[in-house]
Design a protein around this nucleic acid. Structure first.
Lengths: 206, 206
DNA sequence: GTTTGTGAAACGATTCACAGCT
DNA sequence: AGCTGTGAATCGTTTCACAAAC
C-alpha cells in the first residue's frame, strides 16, 4: 500500500471522532464541507484524505455517517482490540490507566510495571502493579501489542530495548528522550515540555 | 518576522534538549552533523532550521554548545518565566502540576481549578485547588500567560471561552475536543487516544 | 443543483551541493 | 581541511477547479 502521511492519519482519527459526534446527534449523512468545518480544515482536504483509501461518499449527497465511521475504524485498525502494557507507575502512568478514552476504543491496559517497591502490589483500576523485573516473564506469555513508556528520562531507553527484544512493535513514549529503536518499530513521542515550548514561541511573537 | 513552520520550532526545542545534554557531558562545541545524529534528522536540516533566525556557528568548527543553547532559549522565549493555570484537577491535571520538566524551564503552575467540592481546598505541590467559579476573579488579578485545559470533553469549550475572555493567549488542551478560539490565541492539542490510533494504524501495516 | 473524486497547479518543506569562512 | 550558511533542486502536501455521479 502507498505510504500515507502521518498528518493524514491524524486527520482521519479526528474525522472519526466527529463522525461519532454526528452519530450521537442523530445525523445520518455529512458532506466533506461539514466535516471540514468541525475539524478546522477544508473540504478538499477531507476528500483527498479519504481518496487514498477508496471512495466512500455519494456525489450530490455526501457520506453516510455510519458507513464512513465504519470505514475509518477499519482503515485505522480499530475493529481489533489491543493489549497495552504501561511501564512506569508515576502520575502520568496512573492517568493513562484510568483514562476512559482508551478502553472505549479497544485499547486495554493489561499490565502496569514499576520498580518502586512501594507501588508494586497495589492495584490500579483492577490492574496490579508489578515489578519491572518481571517485564519479560509477563509479556512474553501475554500477547502485548502496544507499550506505553512513562518512566523517567534516564530509564526509558533501557526499557524500550527490553520491550523491543520481547517483540513489541509500537511504543508510545512519554519520557522526554528520543528513543532509538529498530526501524520496524513505531514510536510516538508525547513531550509535554516541548508542547509548552512551542506555546512559548507562539507567545513571543504577539 | 517571517512565519516559521511548527515542525521547525519543535526541532529547535529538541536541539535545545540535546545541547543541554552535551553541556552536562562537558562538550564545548558540536557540529550540525552531531546534533542531527542525536535528533534523527540531517545536518542540512539543522543548519536550515537555525538559518531562519541567524547564524550561530563558526565555519570549519561548528557551534559553541553554550552559545547555541542560549540563542535557542532566546528564540523560544524561554529566558522569561510563565505563570500557568491548570483547569481540571483529574489525573492528568495532577500529573502536570507535579511534572518536574515544567518549573525547570520557567513554567510555573500558580493556579489549579476544579468544580468537584471534594477536590477544592486540597493542596497540590503547594498549590491550592480552587473552585472553577473563581477562575475570572483569580486570573484577572494574577498575571496568567498559559492555561492548561484538562477537563472532560464536554466542559472544555466553555472553559476555553472563559480563558480567552480573560485574555489568555496560549492554551494547552488535553481534552479530546477541537477547541474553537479567536485566531490570535495559540492552542496546542495533546490527545492521547489519537496518538494510540496512529500507532494502531502503524501496526495495521506490518 | 449538489457534492464527490481527482488530476493539475500552487505551495511549503526538505535535501542537495557548493561557495565562503575559519 | 572542515564545517557553516544558503540558493537551487527536489520532494511531499495542500489547494484548486472541474468532470462525473446522484
Amino acid at each position: 500500500m502507498r505510504k500515507i502521511a502521518e498528518s493524514t492519519v491524524r486527520r482521519l482519527s479526528l474525522y472519526l471522532r466527529f463522525l461519532e459526534e454526528f452519530e450521537e446527534e442523530g445525523t445520518a449523512t455529512v458532506s466533506s464541507e461539514a466535516l471540514a468545518r468541525r475539524g478546522g480544515t477544508t473540504s478538499a482536504q477531507v476528500r483527498k484524505d479519504l481518496s487514498f483509501f477508496g471512495s466512500f461518499g455519494k456525489r450530490g449527497l455526501g457520506y453516510s455517517v455510519r458507513e464512513l465511521a465504519d470505514a475509518l475504524r477499519d482503515i485505522l485498525g480499530l475493529e481489533r482490540s489491543y493489549n497495552v502494557a504501561v511501564v512506569g507507575a508515576g502520575k502520568i502512568g496512573s492517568a493513562l490507566v484510568e483514562y476512559e478514552g482508551f478502553s472505549g476504543r479497544g485499547f486495554h491496559v493489561r499490565w502496569v510495571f514499576d520498580r518502586d517497591p512501594e507501588k508494586i502490589g497495589s492495584a490500579w483500576n483492577g490492574v496490579r502493579v508489578q515489578d519491572v523485573e518481571r517485564l519479560e516473564a509477563e509479556l512474553r506469555a501475554g500477547d502485548v501489542q502496544i507499550a506505553i513508556v512513562a518512566t523517567t528520562a534516564d530509564a526509558a531507553q533501557a526499557i524500550a530495548d527490553r520491550l523491543v527484544a520481547i517483540g513489541v512493535k509500537a511504543i508510545l513514549n512519554f519520557a522526554p528522550v528520543q528513543l532509538s529503536v529498530a526501524h520496524d518499530v513505531a514510536v510516538k513521542n508525547v513531550n509535554m515540555a516541548m508542547e509548552l515550548e512551542t506555546l512559548s514561541y507562539a507567545l513571543r511573537n504577539r
